[in-house]
Every structure is written in structure tokens, then in C-alpha cells.
Amino acid sequence: MKKLKIAYVGFGKSTNRYHIPYLQIRDNFEIARVVTPTLMKNPEAQLALEATGTRFSTDIQDIIQDTTIDLVIIVTPAKSHFALAKQLLQAGKNVLLDKPAVEKLSEMQELIALANAANLFFMPFQNRRFDSDFLTVKKVIETGYLGRVIDIQVHMDHFRPDETVVTGSNFDGAFYGHGVHLVDQMVSLFGSPEKVQYDIRSTRQPLSTLDDHFAVDLFYPDHLKASVHATELALVPYPKWLIQGTKGTFIKQEVDQQENDLKAGIMPGVSGFGEDSPQAYGHLTYLNQNGDRIEKYIPSELGDYGRIYDAAYETLVNGAEKLITDAQMLRVIDILEGGFKNG
């Protein structure tokens, strides 16, 4: 089995929480290099990797000049993504880019064109395609219990009141930060919407220039509406998922447990990691072929953010199609940017 040599640009919380723990239970990747502006900021994590042969430095040229690197993962603040990805693609490197990948559709178009012209791998790290709750929703829809889906809502709600006036660009707000996950999930399920309507606001402090609340409707053929929502002022949150179809309804209250486990120091590979308790299973109500009303709880699929790496491996080593297509990448950024074109 071929082992891919990878390098990280960035060694902060995201790299150490959402990336490396999943690689440590896979034997087809080797973390060869890490470039970070601040060495020994996380000495325990750095020393642990150095003990396995990973080389740390502060200069991205160390990655560019290393011809053994098969894939570079950029996990840095979002504003740096475009310039770093462009630099690496121009240097002939395959790139997996954390999200939100870029702010503008034109930037995504440029990166995709660079990658395709040089026959390079380029894809955003849309790990929430492998959320437990999303995988469960996908399975419920595919089984046909709901009939034709007519309305689907997904929420990313918190209660984090804050009266601080915050300023910044649209790229720093909730729609880019949270919406990139939810919009990508809808695009992966249903494709490109025919029309999009936006409600994007700053609700905690109306004088803020950064949005913290959005409700965005994506309209599809056959009168399907997919709605993505997030707020920081939901003391009692909405269900994570609410789906209505011509034959049934599916409601799931709870979010994927991977992030909670990671924050608690429970790592991938440990028994029970990311698993829902039965109390967190989604509730399905549907009419069977006899017209009988059936209610049951659907055991949650097991999420695994590391499957993004598995997909990248299959493309790079075995020539599989990319998990996230160029068309999907472009449409997601187009929808995000579109929320601010008339605002």
C-alpha cells in the first residue's frame, strides 16, 4: 500500500483537533512536514510528531522545495487561504484547503483553473459531509421513507449572547463560517439550486458589521426548498434537522458528537467515539404501503471526518473522481458570496 507524504501549513487548534487525530488511526499517510509561524506554541503536540519524524519549520519554501510531498493541507486563517493555495498550486503541489476555502467566486475559479492546467489535486476540506447527523439524513432520504422531499431545514444554533460591537469583512461572519458547511451539505444532496433567498443579520449587536444570524432558502425543482439556518441567540435551539416529505417526516434534535468528543479529549479509534446515544437518534414518522402511520427511531450513522482523507487518497493513488466536484466547489462559494452582493 502506498503511503502518502503530507505537509501541513498551520498548526493551530483546527490542525490538532480536526485533522491529525484522524490520521493517527490511518496507516496510509505520513506527516512529513509542518510549517507554522510559531514553533513550540503547542510543545506537547509538536514534540510528539517530531518523535515520529515530522520536521517543523517556519518557511513554506521548505514544503515547496520538498519533492517528496504528495499533498499539502492548508489549515490557516481563512483570509490567507487564497494566496497560500495559489502559491502552492503554482509550485506544483496538490492541495487540500480548509474551509471556507475562499471569499470570492473569481478566486475559486482561478485556483481550480491552476489545478486543472497542471493536473493537480485541489479540494476544500468539507469534513461535515461526514457528520453523523448528515449521513443519517442522507440514508433516510435515500431509503424513500419520506417520499418526495418538499422541505428540509438544517440548523447550527447556539446561545452565545454578546453585546460587543464587532467589525470586519463578510468573510469573517457566520454565513461564511457556518454557512459553508450547511450550504455544501445541501449542494451535495440536491445539486445546484435554481434560486436563493437570503436573510443575513447581526442580531446580538445591531451595530456590528459581522453577521451572526442567517436563514437562507435554496429552491430546487419539484418545489423543494432547502433552508440553512444559524443563530447565536437560540436559548432553546431548533431541531438540527427537520425534513418533510410527501409520505413522512424526519426530525433529529442533536448534532454530530465528534466535535464534543474531540473537545473532551476522546479521540478517534477509542471505543464509542462519535457515537450517538439512543436518546439522540432521529425520529421518523411515515406512512407505509398500506397507509398505516409508523413511528420509529433511526440509529445514527457513524461520522468520521477522516473520510475526507480517504477520499483524497483514492483520488491521488487510485484515480477516483474527487469527492467534491469543481462544480460543487464553485456553486458553494457563489452562494456564499451572493449573500452580500446586494447588501
Rank of each mutant, 00 (worst) to 15 (best):
T285A: 12
Y305M: 03
T285S: 13
P299L: 01
H283I: 03
S300Q: 05
H283C: 03
H283Q: 11
D304R: 00
I294V: 07
Y281I: 07
Y305L: 08
A280R: 13
S277G: 14
P299I: 01
Q289H: 13
Y286L: 02
T285P: 11
S300K: 04
E301L: 00
N288V: 09
H283A: 13
G306E: 06
P299S: 00
D276K: 08
D276E: 10
Q279Y: 10
R307P: 03
T285Q: 12
G274M: 02
T285F: 05
E275T: 08
K296T: 02
R307W: 07
F273G: 04
Y297V: 07
Y297N: 08
G291A: 09
E275K: 14
Y305A: 05
N290D: 15
G303I: 00
Y297T: 08
I294G: 13
S300W: 02
R307S: 13
N290V: 15
E301A: 04
Y297F: 10
Q289I: 15
Q289D: 15
Y305W: 01
E275S: 12
G291I: 00
G303Y: 00
L284V: 00
Y305K: 01
D304E: 11
I298V: 10
Y281E: 06
H283Y: 12
Q279C: 09
Y297G: 03
R307D: 13
Y297R: 10
N290F: 13
G303H: 01
E275A: 15
L287C: 12
L287D: 07
D304M: 01
P278N: 04
K296M: 11
D276F: 12
R307Q: 13
Y286S: 10
H283N: 05
T285K: 09
N290M: 14
L284K: 03
L287W: 10
Q279S: 15
G274D: 04
R293N: 15
P278H: 02
E301T: 05
A280M: 09
E295T: 06
